[in-house]
Protein backbone atom coordinates (compact mmCIF):
# COMPACT_ATOMS: atom_id res chain seq x y z
CA UNK A 1 0.00 0.00 0.00
CA UNK A 2 3.03 2.28 0.41
CA UNK A 3 3.11 3.17 -3.27
CA UNK A 4 -0.59 4.07 -3.32
CA UNK A 5 0.52 7.46 -1.91
CA UNK A 6 3.04 7.91 -4.72
CA UNK A 7 0.73 7.23 -7.61
CA UNK A 8 1.42 9.46 -10.60
CA UNK A 9 -0.78 12.55 -10.66
CA UNK A 10 -1.22 15.04 -13.50
CA UNK A 11 2.00 16.34 -15.05
CA UNK A 12 3.62 19.22 -13.21
CA UNK A 13 2.73 22.00 -15.60
CA UNK A 14 5.66 24.28 -14.77
CA UNK A 15 8.31 21.93 -16.19
CA UNK A 16 6.85 22.02 -19.70
CA UNK A 17 7.43 24.64 -22.37
CA UNK A 18 3.97 25.94 -23.30
CA UNK A 19 2.67 24.64 -26.63
CA UNK A 20 -0.57 25.45 -28.42
CA UNK A 21 -1.99 22.01 -27.55
CA UNK A 22 -1.16 22.21 -23.83
CA UNK A 23 -2.22 25.86 -23.52
CA UNK A 24 -5.61 25.10 -25.10
CA UNK A 25 -5.99 22.05 -22.86
CA UNK A 26 -5.52 24.07 -19.66
CA UNK A 27 -7.72 26.82 -21.10
CA UNK A 28 -10.52 24.26 -21.44
CA UNK A 29 -10.35 23.68 -17.70
CA UNK A 30 -10.01 27.38 -16.88
CA UNK A 31 -13.06 28.24 -19.00
CA UNK A 32 -14.91 25.40 -17.28
CA UNK A 33 -14.26 27.12 -13.94
CA UNK A 34 -15.45 30.47 -15.36
CA UNK A 35 -18.65 28.75 -16.56
CA UNK A 36 -19.13 27.18 -13.11
CA UNK A 37 -18.99 30.66 -11.62
CA UNK A 38 -21.44 31.80 -14.28
CA UNK A 39 -23.87 29.01 -13.33
CA UNK A 40 -23.91 30.36 -9.76
CA UNK A 41 -24.92 33.80 -11.10
CA UNK A 42 -27.48 32.24 -13.45
CA UNK A 43 -29.22 30.45 -10.55
CA UNK A 44 -29.09 33.62 -8.39
CA UNK A 45 -30.67 35.54 -11.28
CA UNK A 46 -33.43 32.90 -11.63
CA UNK A 47 -34.07 33.04 -7.86
CA UNK A 48 -34.37 36.83 -8.06
CA UNK A 49 -36.93 36.48 -10.85
CA UNK A 50 -38.85 33.82 -8.90
CA UNK A 51 -38.93 36.08 -5.82
CA UNK A 52 -40.80 38.81 -7.72
CA UNK A 53 -40.57 41.99 -9.80
CA UNK A 54 -38.66 44.06 -7.23
CA UNK A 55 -35.77 41.66 -6.70
CA UNK A 56 -35.70 40.93 -10.45
CA UNK A 57 -35.30 44.64 -11.16
CA UNK A 58 -32.25 44.73 -8.86
CA UNK A 59 -30.81 41.64 -10.58
CA UNK A 60 -31.39 43.20 -14.02
CA UNK A 61 -29.71 46.43 -12.90
CA UNK A 62 -26.67 44.42 -11.74
CA UNK A 63 -26.56 42.41 -15.00
CA UNK A 64 -26.97 45.59 -17.07
CA UNK A 65 -24.24 47.50 -15.24
CA UNK A 66 -20.75 48.04 -16.60
CA UNK A 67 -19.43 45.25 -14.36
CA UNK A 68 -22.33 42.97 -15.31
CA UNK A 69 -21.60 43.39 -19.01
CA UNK A 70 -17.87 42.80 -18.42
CA UNK A 71 -18.67 39.53 -16.67
CA UNK A 72 -21.21 38.55 -19.35
CA UNK A 73 -18.53 39.17 -21.97
CA UNK A 74 -16.01 36.93 -20.16
CA UNK A 75 -18.77 34.35 -19.69
CA UNK A 76 -19.61 34.37 -23.41
CA UNK A 77 -15.96 33.98 -24.46
CA UNK A 78 -15.58 31.05 -22.03
CA UNK A 79 -18.86 29.54 -23.23
CA UNK A 80 -17.99 29.62 -26.93
CA UNK A 81 -14.43 28.40 -26.34
CA UNK A 82 -15.58 25.53 -24.10
CA UNK A 83 -18.35 24.63 -26.58
CA UNK A 84 -16.02 24.49 -29.59
CA UNK A 85 -13.12 22.81 -27.78
CA UNK A 86 -15.64 20.36 -26.28
CA UNK A 87 -16.70 19.41 -29.81
CA UNK A 88 -12.95 18.96 -30.58
CA UNK A 89 -12.77 16.59 -27.61
CA UNK A 90 -15.79 14.62 -28.85
CA UNK A 91 -14.07 14.36 -32.24
CA UNK A 92 -10.96 12.96 -30.50
CA UNK A 93 -13.20 10.41 -28.73
CA UNK A 94 -13.88 8.85 -32.14
CA UNK A 95 -10.14 8.16 -32.33
CA UNK A 96 -9.34 10.79 -34.96
CA UNK A 97 -7.38 14.04 -35.09
CA UNK A 98 -4.41 13.13 -32.88
CA UNK A 99 -1.71 13.87 -35.50
CA UNK A 100 0.32 16.86 -34.30
CA UNK A 101 -0.44 18.95 -37.40
CA UNK A 102 -4.18 18.19 -37.16
CA UNK A 103 -4.31 18.90 -33.42
CA UNK A 104 -2.58 22.25 -34.00
CA UNK A 105 -4.93 23.12 -36.85
CA UNK A 106 -8.14 22.20 -34.97
CA UNK A 107 -6.76 24.08 -31.95
CA UNK A 108 -6.37 27.32 -33.89
CA UNK A 109 -9.77 26.74 -35.49
CA UNK A 110 -11.28 26.61 -31.98
CA UNK A 111 -9.58 29.88 -30.96
CA UNK A 112 -10.59 31.74 -34.13
CA UNK A 113 -14.09 30.22 -34.01
CA UNK A 114 -14.60 31.29 -30.39
CA UNK A 115 -13.52 34.88 -31.17
CA UNK A 116 -15.81 35.01 -34.21
CA UNK A 117 -18.83 33.50 -32.42
CA UNK A 118 -18.37 35.93 -29.53
CA UNK A 119 -18.23 38.88 -31.92
CA UNK A 120 -21.27 37.74 -33.91
CA UNK A 121 -23.30 36.96 -30.76
CA UNK A 122 -22.59 40.39 -29.23
CA UNK A 123 -23.25 42.33 -32.42
CA UNK A 124 -26.56 40.49 -33.04
CA UNK A 125 -27.45 40.50 -29.34
CA UNK A 126 -26.85 44.24 -28.88
CA UNK A 127 -28.84 44.90 -32.03
CA UNK A 128 -31.83 42.99 -30.61
CA UNK A 129 -31.52 44.78 -27.26
CA UNK A 130 -31.26 48.05 -29.14
CA UNK A 131 -27.81 49.16 -28.03
CA UNK A 132 -26.42 49.21 -31.56
Amino acid sequence: MADARNRPLSPHLQVYRPQITSVLSITHRATGIVLSLGSVFLVLWLLAAAAGPRSFEIAQDCAGSWLGYAFLFCFSVALFYHLLNGIRHLFWDTGHGFELATATRTGWAVVIGAVMLTAVAWILGLRIVGGL
Partner: peptide
Protein backbone atom coordinates in the same frame (compact mmCIF):
# COMPACT_ATOMS: atom_id res chain seq x y z
CA UNK B 1 -21.43 17.30 -23.34
CA UNK B 2 -23.44 16.14 -26.36
CA UNK B 3 -26.74 17.22 -24.77
CA UNK B 4 -25.26 20.62 -23.89
CA UNK B 5 -24.43 21.50 -27.52
CA UNK B 6 -28.09 22.21 -28.54
CA UNK B 7 -29.00 23.42 -25.02
CA UNK B 8 -26.18 25.99 -25.10
CA UNK B 9 -27.22 27.24 -28.53
CA UNK B 10 -30.81 27.64 -27.29
CA UNK B 11 -29.56 29.55 -24.23
CA UNK B 12 -27.37 31.86 -26.32
CA UNK B 13 -30.36 32.58 -28.56
CA UNK B 14 -32.53 33.29 -25.53
CA UNK B 15 -30.09 35.68 -23.82
CA UNK B 16 -30.73 38.82 -25.93
CA UNK B 17 -34.46 38.42 -25.17
CA UNK B 18 -33.70 38.31 -21.46
CA UNK B 19 -31.19 41.19 -21.40
CA UNK B 20 -33.02 44.23 -20.10
CA UNK B 21 -36.34 42.37 -19.94
CA UNK B 22 -38.91 43.39 -17.35
CA UNK B 23 -40.30 40.85 -14.92
CA UNK B 24 -43.55 40.75 -16.89
Amino acid sequence: AIALIPLTLFFVGLLPNLAGATHR
